[in-house]
Every structure is written in C-alpha cells, then in structure tokens.
C-alpha cells in the first residue's frame, strides 16, 4: 500500500527521505538486547502497574535500567521485569466473544437490587 501522505511535518522535521518508514518485517535482528516489560509498584500496598519497556541483556540489568528510566522521581518502591516474549495478550478481534457475555448480566452489580428504604448499611 502506498502512503496516503506525501508530506507530513512533526514540527520542523520534514518527511522527505526521513527514516522509520519501513513497515516491520518478521526478521527481528538478533543484535538488539532482548526487550523487557517493566512494572512498578508506586507505593507499598498498591499493585504493580505497567510502566513501559526497555532493552537489557539480562534481568538484573533490566531492573537497574528500569530504576534509571522509570523511577527518577521516586515513582516506585518495587520493580518487576519480564521479557516481552513471555507476555501473552488477548486478541482485540476476539473482544466481542470475550467480553460480551458479561454485558447482559447486570444482576452481578449491587445496584440491580431494589431494597426497602428502611434497610441501612447494605
């Protein structure tokens, strides 16, 4: 498919002969360090939350890099890293069959039930 855009500017950067325009192929270059996903617990008592990703040779380096890249302003008290190739995700195209079954089950929500006014603390 040819580009719909002949010229596009992000600020002062012209498109002409600019890079990154190649559509990705499957032959991932081996020379990049593996990619890791980073999860950070912002404070004790909260869940780890996905913060982003980075490249590192091993898990220890991934944690050290995550410290520098994602917690420069005390954003975290704990870091998880997992190699991106081990992440499995649901397919957006299957979202209908995955999530629709719960749409018609409104009786799973407390607001579905009418209770007499006199009932307190329920």
């Amino acid at each position: 498919m040819t580009s719909l855009i002949k010229k596009y500017y992000y600020g002062d950067i012209p498109e002409d002969k600019s890079g990154g325009a190649d559509i990705p192929s499957n032959n991932v270059r081996q020379s990049d360090w593996p990619l890791w996903e980073v999860f950070i617990r912002s404070k004790q008592g909260l869940d780890h939350k996905h913060a982003g990703s980075l490249h590192a040779a091993d898990a220890q380096m991934a944690i050290e890099n995550a410290r520098d890249v994602y917690t420069r302003r005390m954003e975290g008290v704990s870091i998880w890293v997992v190699e991106s190739k081990h992440m499995h995700a649901s397919n957006p195209e299957e979202s209908t069959s995955l999530y629709e079954p719960s749409e018609d089950k409104i009786y799973r929500h407390p607001t579905f039930y009418d209770l007499p006014e006199e009932v307190k603390h329920m």
Partner: peptide
C-alpha cells in the same frame, strides 16, 4: 523508542536510520 517499537520497528533499525542520516531530528 519503546513506543515506536510497539509498532513493530526494531531499536537497532531506528538508531541506524539516525546514523545514516535517513531519519531526521529537530534542527534546533
């Protein structure tokens, strides 16, 4: 760079494009 990688490009290719002059950066 990691946001760009979610679109399927590799880090190395991206950096090579900067070094070869194929990719631009802000002129400032």
């Amino acid at each position: 760079y990691s946001a760009a990688e979610t679109l399927g490009t590799t880090r190395e290719q991206t950096i090579n494009d900067l070094h070869s002059g194929k990719a631009k950066y802000s002129s400032i």
